[in-house]
């Protein structure tokens, strides 16, 4: 039995708990797009009773509310880690997700800023590209974004992948980090959350800015990975008499130690050294890491031709050493 006093107490309990309800409700707004803009909510209660004439039902008045468009946008950098780049590299993609968390169709403009601070360098953004839906950057297949011309139009809950392509400046050090900020801005407008744009919502209602305020940004990062090689050359001499004099007939053993540094790779690292004039190369004397190499231009790494010793080391990661030796006799 609900009496007057009972409902009065209930009302007080209701108001006392309202603050808690509000806090718990906030995340709901950010997650799902929610009821589509323009939806009409109607509420009617009914009462059945018997006052002697049998069971009777009466309906209340009907309250109707219209759901306005809530503009809610989310931009999220979605690479799992910093994107590895090398000095001078072009069209390196950063991957972002742009999601319409609002409840109406909305058009968004995209823009980038690379002077975000807190990083080591500013990548030079060359293009924004809208993915064709597979989440993989494919030049020529994905669509190049042109502001004002092909601004993405997103349905509620729809998410698109956007790639930001940049050129990495030359002369950067290994481990340098550079960030780019991508911003998506509602074409309806931006402002403080709760700002209402009369008649601008889907279905002709108002458009109301949600917690994002009509725009959202996120930063994506590149990390420079480079490697360097240094070569130390030394020679030992064995003369025909068992000494170390450089006389005709002495054999000189040259040792080249290539040392790589840095976090990157050196692709197709080739070491070549011309046999000094006044000496003659000793055929079949090339070794790599202690293993003999043939002089022919064949499957193994070493070869000799045109008076030059050449060793193809392939791709060498930073932090390694390769030791090459060859011999020549003094004429």
């Amino acid at each position: 039995m609900t009496s007057f006093s009972g409902s009065f107490a209930a009302r007080h309990a209701l108001l006392a708990t309202s603050a808690i309800f509000i806090f718990s409700a906030l995340p709901t707004i950010a997650h799902a797009a929610g009821t589509r803009a323009g939806t009409v909510i109607s509420n009617t209660a009914s009462a059945t009773f018997d006052n002697g004439g049998g069971s009777t039902t009466v309906n209340s008045n009907t309250n109707t509310l219209t759901v306005d468009e809530l503009i809610e946008i989310d931009v999220d950098w979605s690479d799992s880690a910093d994107v590895v780049t090398t000095p001078g590299a072009t069209s390196q993609p950063l991957k972002f997700q742009v999601t319409n968390n609002g409840n109406g169709v909305e058009t968004y403009g995209l823009a980038t800023v690379s002077t975000i601070g807190g990083d080591n360098y500013d990548p030079s953004v060359t293009q924004i590209v809208i993915d064709d839906g597979d989440g993989v950057y494919e030049p020529g297949q994905d669509t190049i974004y042109v502001p004002g011309s092909n601004d993405p139009v997103l349905n509620p809950d729809q998410s698109i992948t956007v790639f930001v392509l940049s050129t990495t400046p030359g002369g950067l050090a290994d481990g340098d980090r550079g960030g780019v900020q991508l911003t998506a801005t509602s074409k309806t407008g931006t402002g403080a959350p709760g700002t209402s744009f009369a008649g601008a919502g889907e279905g002709g209602g108002n458009a109301v800015l949600g917690t994002s305020g009509g725009d959202d940004s996120d930063n994506g990062f590149y990390i420079v990975s480079s490697a360097n090689v240094s070569i130390a050359k030394s020679a030992t001499v064995l003369d025909p008499f068992g000494g170390t004099g450089v006389v005709p007939g002495s054999t000189i053993t040259y040792t080249l130690v290539a040392t790589t540094t840095g976090s990157g790779n050196l692709p197709n690292l080739v070491i070549s050294d011309a046999v000094p004039t006044g000496t003659t190369y000793v055929p079949g004397s090339i070794t790599l890491g202690g293993t003999a190499q043939s002089d022919a231009n064949d499957a193994d790494a070493g070869r000799f031709g045109s008076g030059t010793v050449t060793v193809n080391l392939g791709t060498v990661a930073g932090g390694q050493t390769r030791t090459i030796t060859f011999k020549a006799t003094v004429n």
């Binding site: 209701l14 309800f21 509000i22 409700a25 906030l26 709901t28 707004i29 799902a32 797009a33 929610g34 009821t35 909510i41 509420n43 209660a45 009462a47 009773f49 006052n51 209340s60 509310l65 219209t66 759901v67 306005d68 468009e69 809530l70 409840n103 209602g205 108002n206 109301v208 949600g210």
Partner: peptide
């Protein structure tokens, strides 16, 4: 309200009288 947005908190009040 006449208009609401997703996430709005509503209070429904039903008054009855015999």
């Amino acid at each position: 309200p006449r208009v609401v947005v997703p996430g709005d908190k509503l209070v429904f009040v039903l008054n009855y009288r015999n």
